[in-house]
Design a protein around this nucleic acid. Sequence first.
RNA 1: GGAGAGGUGGCCGAGCGGUCGAAGGCGGCGGUUUGCUAAACCGUUAUACGGGGAUAACUCGUAUCGAGGGUUCGAAUCCCUUCCUCUCCGCCA
Length: 429
Amino acid sequence: MHDIRFIREDPAAFDAGLKKRNLAPLSAELLEIDKRRRAAISESEAAQAKRKALSRQIGIAKGKGENADALMAEVEALEATLKQGEAEAKRLDEELTRRLEVLPNLPFDDVPDGVDETGNVEIRRVGSQRNFPFQPKDHVALGEATGEMDFASAARISGARFVFLKKHLARMERAIAQFMLDLHTSEEGGYTEVNPPLLVRDNAAYGVGQLPKFAEDMFHTDNGFWLVPTAEVPLTNLVNDTIVEEKDLPLRFTAFTPCFRSEAGAAGKDTRGMIRQHQFPKVELVSITTPEQSDAEHQRMTGRAEEILKRLGLPFRTIVLCGGDMGPASRKTFDIEVWLPGQNAYREISSCSNCGEYQARRMNARFRPKEGKGTRFVHTLNGSGLAVGRTLIAVLENYQNEDGSVTIPEALRPYMGGLAALPAPTKRK
RNA sequence: GGAGAGGUGGCCGAGCGGUCGAAGGCGGCGGUUUGCUAAACCGUUAUACGGGGAUAACUCGUAUCGAGGGUUCGAAUCCCUUCCUCUCCGCCA
């Protein structure tokens, strides 16, 4: 949600931000609505002030037992203008909100220009791609060979874009999540583990910017709940409608949850395998900071997500998204892409965004500064730390052996009962 | 699911048709006292929007007592709708 005063003060900066989003300038028409809105408010308030004064006089007169008919007639005469003025002011105010609340956040100046993913810029590459002496398989081939990744059963029971994981793979997914949580909640990680609700109300979905524009991307229950598309929704809303003390910032939350996305089928992309599912597990990171801290926190958060991949020995690259490819709430986003030899491609495994005060304004999340008076909006950040299902895929594809067994990365072994490798599939008789 | 109770400022808690933005307390801030701390005492302490002003200090106005609507000259107070919380009973992982 944008601050109309910011647009009033610097319409050129606003339009420049929209341009980075490949949107046409809007400041002129928004300010026109704002102008009419403010005029209507002034008019309406003047009438209200008059009524208030008269009503007070009526009260005083009646208190003294005097006749107040003349005064009451005066108020009566005001009635029409009053009602009309109020309605007009309200209508214009709502129109402005409706226009503003669907606009995306303004990218920072250092965000690259571009209309889609081709405009993204790689900023670093870590780890080296393994040289396979054989043709590496993708995760579907590996998982189905052992029967531990079962798409056929999932299709019978839930339809497309679901999967059953069994035995070692089920356990490894759990191991990965636990490894991530342990690192994030360690002293150097600094995050507080949270186990949030997975069903949320409209206001929570609105607060992070999912509503009103992206309703069709979420599952909805028939009694009015949204299934969370990411734990970002409940975690960020932990501070909605609250005022935190500056000394308590930053707040850092992490959660391991399933995520539910209904849009996953619509794109027609990644129809094969576990890459894009209606339900997937993810460890999420959320930070609440002061405006001054948010940029450093953004770097830090991205670093914490990268640390997971480093410890798992998975090669990855980090890119900064261009204006056209960023999520609407974000001012700047780093994507981390893991190398998948089975696909011969880097694939997104984390997305870390600094949302500035965009979400804070929508959910009314403020802090009380140590210096000065009043309150200010917090900055909110979120990132995957990491997508657990995709991490599982990455482990399978990067650590596979020619016989179909999979070496387990050292970091995960303590979580797998010391197991060193997932067994190769047994040959069919 | 059944039966009740309630939602007031950063927090607790009064008020139940008329100068109520709202008593009192706590907390916060400023000060006095004090060797320091504590205690005591005095003062102060909401937010949003709009107008004026230098996009200042400040000032004027309007709104805000869960949300929305209604009654009334006037609503925190009355009525309706809705959301939420709590208690008891039932049911259930």
